[in-house]
Design a protein around this nucleic acid. Sequence first.
DNA 1: ATGGCCGAGCGCCTCGGA
Length: 256
Amino acid sequence: MRIATWNVNSLNVRLPHVLQWLQQAAPDVLCLQELKLEDHKFPRAELEAAGYQVAFTGQKTYNGVAILSRQPLEDIQYNLPNLPDEQRRLVAATVGGLRIVCGYFPNGQALGSEKYPYKLGWLNALHDWLQGELQRYPALALLGDYNIAPADLDVHDPKAWEGQVLVSPPEREAYQRLLALGLTDAYRHLQPDTEKAFTWWDYRMNGFRRNLGLRIDHILLSAPALDKLTACDIDREPRTWERPSDHTPVWAELQA
DNA sequence: ATGGCCGAGCGCCTCGGA
């Protein structure tokens, strides 16, 4: 079973990219973030024609998440039940016994911004909700755009980024608290030392060509899911396509 | 050189992203 995550930065613009990647990467499950469209504009017919069932929750202009799956999606949940919030940032469903949680974590904007405590609060609510979720679903994968680079190894220029949003100690501590629930970073589990392995590059400054990026999109696995992990990688190819998202897909292969 | 790029919105500038 191949599972994947991709922040598409507008599904309106990126639907052709998504269809192309579904065809060539053939994931069983693909989690999408930053749909930037309302539910009535979700391209359900096109994705179903490609062989995928869909669960999604969106809003105009901002946020929005979806799970695409070849197998049926069961027990679908929208948003964090313990956090009243207008922002559409989470959808979860069970696929073949594996609990899939798709999240678009808040960016935080800047440490002095009111969006920063919102981010930390969201992370805290996610943590608390996951505790119960892991009890109900021991085999669980948390995929998405975390907007956190867990370690300096995940940052192209740690000195320039030091103390900024996406790498600040409180965010990294919140990320570590997720790991403390029994989750493991699939990519780092298999590639503990790989440098300059990024999932996002700024549109500006020729960021991608110069590989000035961050690793902020992740797949975290609970122990029963980690036992089945055989491969995990970042697919940089879609970032080379015409009019790309600033993020590129991350995928993991789990034994059946 | 602290900017540069994108996408969306009732657009011709602003906001948010990361």
